[in-house]
Computed example of a mutant assay.
Amino acid sequence: MPTPVSTIPNLGPASEAAFARAGIHSAEEIRAMGADAAYLRLLQADTRPHFIGYYVLVMGLQGRPWNDCQGAEKAALRTRFDELKAQAARTPSNKRDRLRLEAVLDEIGLREPPK
């Protein structure tokens, strides 16, 4: 049985819903993808980019409190966040549309979520 996304430290029901809309339904999927790929999927599914949301995910996957990110580490994460935003902007609209469609099909139960 998959583990809920909200079991990752710092992530709650809103994050879980956003990941579900992006077609990601378990903490295992996020861990396997890594923070950058998982956050990119959120952006490609038209989740509004938010730096805090990104570094909260990174910190959570490391088992750290969300506010543990400071100084040079936070600056480096900001650079990665900006790169992910730029990459998402380059994603062809047909791929974004497919990701949104898959998420809707998952949500209404017409497609088996990935395990």
Rank of each mutant, 00 (worst) to 15 (best):
103 A>G: 15
45 A>P: 01
63 G>D: 09
108 I>H: 13
50 H>Q: 07
95 K>L: 14
66 W>H: 13
6 S>Y: 05
42 L>N: 05
55 Y>V: 00
36 D>Q: 12
49 P>A: 04
1 M>F: 12
62 Q>K: 15
19 F>P: 10
31 R>W: 11
75 A>H: 05
13 P>V: 04
86 A>Y: 11
78 R>G: 09
101 L>M: 13
115 K>R: 15
113 P>F: 05
83 E>F: 04
31 R>I: 05
10 N>Y: 04
99 L>Q: 13
11 L>M: 14
15 S>Q: 06
62 Q>A: 15
65 P>M: 07
70 Q>V: 13
112 E>A: 04
113 P>T: 09
16 E>M: 06
89 A>E: 13
67 N>W: 14
111 R>S: 00
64 R>A: 10
30 I>C: 11
64 R>P: 05
90 R>F: 08
28 E>G: 14
15 S>I: 00
40 L>P: 06
112 E>K: 11
92 P>V: 04
53 G>L: 00
91 T>I: 06
82 D>N: 13
69 C>G: 15
102 E>R: 14
59 M>A: 15
94 N>I: 12
97 D>R: 14
93 S>E: 15
22 A>R: 12
20 A>T: 06
70 Q>Y: 11
108 I>D: 12
75 A>V: 10
55 Y>I: 03
40 L>W: 01
33 M>G: 05
13 P>N: 08
10 N>C: 00
39 Y>R: 00
77 L>T: 02
57 L>N: 04
80 R>E: 12
9 P>T: 07
39 Y>A: 02
81 F>T: 03
4 P>L: 03
20 A>L: 09
72 A>K: 14
